[in-house]
Design a protein around this nucleic acid. Structure first.
Lengths: 225, 225
DNA sequence: GCAAAAGTGTTGTGTCTACACCCATGT
DNA sequence: ACATGGGTGTAGACACAACACTTTTGC
């Protein structure tokens, strides 16, 4: 006897200044009517990543998911009341400037104010947020939350929404520039109606995950030539 | 049609000053005679963690595995030539002072000089080592590699073996003490035959994983009361 | 006394936070 | 002019690496 295998995705995007997750309202029992993470069964001859991309394709265009990584596999035999089911969860990130057309039964929900979710999807969603928060600190994942080009205040607002605490645009700029994560594009963004100095535009140097702060401590000793 | 589900473990221990992994020699095709990670099929009504603990019980006593965490689930349909199989890998750590009785077909191998491994087990093993190296820097995982009490040179040697580069006992002590990871036991270890000052003994404060260096950067702003 | 091993003190450096200050624009 | 938002400069805090120096033992 073998368990069923499903894939799930915690798809996160910053919308209206808040970190939001894509949820789907179940049409069938169990948990009929409850909100849950998008996903579905694994098909023969596909990988887990292919599977979650396929299931997500109904919700968001593939090109709109800028980053996708495996979170964890959940295996509690009681997690699904009806069948023996393993679920492998992925974390997906969508840049803030795209607005995917969604099916009727699918909408964005603030991660900070989640409704009661089906199965163990609430825990999984929070695990996804934790992963994102951690990686914002030591990698360049920001690229997956931001538009191609942006001002520093815009980027700061994305970090604030994702991290849940104040972030200084001043210092954010210096940290990311020193690490070579950001590049100035040279363009200026004209000021808004209230006036103010025009903002410089930046973009992320790479659009794939890189670790930018590899060892907090216990660095290898400096090599002297 | 459903895939078979197996669990695997990268069980690591520092032996003879080197980081070693527990490998098992396959008795059956495919990869008959090749070295591979211990593990086996998931049984009904058990979790993945229970499964890997059950399979490991043949190799090492459960109490000897001081830390166990999920690494990743591998799903390439080609990863097993004979059947459609998903493998969820775990990382297990064994303190350096235990010496489990092993079956005939199972031995320790230096991770630095791995033989050709069956399936994708070589990659998984290296992923396990990377996870350990990263966590040594920002958590207290050291507890799972070390005996109950130890001197600082002994602990340093464990870090050297796991990290693969020189580590200063002087600074290691200060880092771990400041973080409250280590506690002095008050005992002294008498010096060896070559003389030398007796060493103070320490132990880890906790024997469960704690994050000790939560944010490298982008810390939340300091709250002023 | 001398070698060996452990432990302490101190300096320097890199990286971040905090905050004061300066710049460019709209009204 | 002045409010608004963007940007720079600088000082301080902190944590760590490096290394010289001191302590305690065996022979």
């Amino acid at each position: 006897m073998r368990p069923a295998q499903v894939t799930l995705a915690v798809v996160l995007q910053v919308r209206d200044g808040r970190l939001q997750v894509l949820l789907w309202q179940r049409a069938e029992e169990p948990f009929k009517g409850a909100w849950s993470l998008p996903g579905g069964y694994l098909a023969p001859a596909e990988t887990l990543e292919q599977s979650i991309r396929r299931h997500l394709a109904d919700k968001v265009d593939v090109r709109e998911v800028a980053h996708l990584e495996q979170l964890e596999t959940r295996s509690d035999p009681e997690r699904h009341p009806g069948e023996w089911q393993l679920a492998t969860a992925y974390l997906g990130l969508v840049p803030s400037d795209v607005n995917p057309a969604l099916p009727e039964d699918t909408t964005w929900h603030a991660v900070g104010r989640l409704p009661e979710l089906a199965f163990d999807h609430g825990e999984i969603t929070l695990a996804g947020r934790e992963r994102l928060r951690a990686k914002l600190s030591y990698t360049n994942v920001g690229f997956a939350l931001a538009p191609d080009t942006f001002t520093l205040s815009e980027l700061r607002d994305l970090y604030v929404a994702a991290l849940g605490h104040a972030v200084s645009a001043t210092n954010l700029k210096r940290v990311l520039l020193r690490r070579g994560v950001l590049l100035p594009t040279g363009e200026l963004r004209p000021s808004g109606q209230g006036g103010g100095r025009p903002a410089a535009c930046f973009r992320f140097e790479h659009s794939r995950l890189h670790i930018t702060d590899p060892f907090a401590v216990l660095r290898p000793p400096r090599v002297i030539d």
